[in-house]
């Protein structure tokens, strides 16, 4: 598979701060690739390195096989959808979208028809004469998308493009973005701090923490086989067990992760190879589709347990806070983690 973007040992320092620290990534052509991490973890700096707004302090970046060092942003075959959309306030929507074509010298008739097409693609046909200030947040977001896509870039960079939208709109745009990417076959590099968003849209996700990459994997592997305590707790929720308790339960001193929904309350069957623990039931939260329990083991370790409410009948509540409960999970559900700091 040819590579769209390749980072080799890339670092970017701002004074004393290492914003990006020895990062290596391979992004394949046509891939929906997400950079996921908390704020300040270096994901946006990586995006700006690809766009050319920042230069690496060390290491090399290749875009479609060509060394990117020294290539200014306007000569790169990549376009960006900015977090604040960065629409030009003094131009109408059509001129905003046609801007990239205009500066490249495309004749007026052609650039207007292509801009109209791009607007139609994001369901904004007929909005060309409006000013950005007259649009809603979601509409501005679509204009920013059309303005980038009209240039037919080989790589589209998206910097938390859905962050400013409300939940319903965000979910709708997630589906639309994913469809658009499939339809156009363009490489998408998507920056987000929202792990649900990253999991539901991406082919692969790189998880960032403090300027470094903790893990690059498919959403499914990221969730089922987190490599580090940070990934286990940042992607979804997880119970990370360390130290003596980890050794007693798993047989290895390395920390392990167990997802709340993989734990069952009650006693395991006598013949099963399940791990069995006992503790005090501290709290019960009814969350609609699931119920969440908090169990404190005798060692002090807190264990989150989640049980799906997958029957349409109202089940009688079998547990009360304050009582002692047993809990168990299959051996295979535990994922051994590298012994690094948690999030």
């Amino acid at each position: 598979m040819p590579l769209a973007v390749q980072f080799t040992q890339v670092s970017r320092t701002f004074g004393e701060v290492k914003a990006v620290d020895q990062v290596s990534i391979d992004i394949a052509e046509g891939e929906f690739f997400s950079l996921l991490g908390p704020s300040g973890s270096g994901k946006t700096t990586c995006l700006r390195l690809i766009a050319g707004f920042e230069q690496p302090s060390s290491g090399s970046i290749r875009i479609h096989g060509l060394e990117a060092a020294g290539v200014p942003p306007y000569q790169r075959d990549v376009n960006t959808v900015f977090q604040d959309y960065a629409l030009f306030p003094h131009m109408n929507v059509l001129d905003n979208v046609a801007y990239g074509l205009k500066v490249k010298g495309t004749p007026k008739a052609e650039r207007h028809s292509r801009a109209e097409n791009a607007l139609a693609m994001v369901a904004l046909a007929g909005y060309g004469a409006r000013k950005p200030a007259q649009l809603s947040g979601g509409q501005r977001q679509r204009v920013a998308l059309a303005r980038a896509l009209v240039n037919r870039p080989r790589v589209l960079l998206l910097d938390e493009p859905l962050g400013a939208l409300d939940l319903k709109l965000r979910e709708q745009m997630q589906v639309e973005l994913k469809n658009l990417q499939r339809q156009l076959g363009i490489t998408f590099v998507f920056v987000t701090h929202d792990q649900t968003e990253a999991l539901s849209m991406s082919d692969r996700v790189a998880v960032f923490n403090r300027g470094r990459i903790e893990q690059v994997d498919t959403p499914r592997n990221l969730y089922l086989n987190p490599a580090t305590p940070f990934v286990a707790s940042f992607v979804g929720t997880s119970n990370v067990v360390r130290g003596a308790l980890a050794e007693a339960l798993s047989g290895s001193p390395a920390p392990f992760s167990i997802r709340p929904e993989h734990i069952r309350l009650g006693a395991a069957g006598p013949d099963s190879r399940h791990v069995q623990v006992e503790g005090l039931l501290r709290d019960i939260q009814y969350q609609g589709s699931a119920t969440r329990f908090e169990v404190q083991l005798d060692s002090g370790q807190l264990l989150a347990v989640s049980q799906a409410n997958d029957s349409w009948q109202a089940m009688p509540q079998a547990w009360q806070p304050g009582q002692r409960v047993q809990a168990h999970w299959p051996q295979e559900a535990m994922t051994q983690l590298q012994d690094t700091e948690a999030y």
Binding site: A51, G52, F53, P72, P73, Y74, V78, N79, T80, F82, Q83, D84, A86, L87, F88, P89, Y99, G100, K102, V103, K104, R147, A148, N151
Partner: peptide, 20 residues
């Protein structure tokens, strides 16, 4: 980011100054 957006869309320094 307006200036960056302009550069990103292919405008060089002079075009960015002139149009943005």
């Amino acid at each position: 980011s307006l200036i960056e957006a302009s550069m990103d869309l292919g405008a060089d320094g002079w075009q960015t100054f002139r149009y943005i």
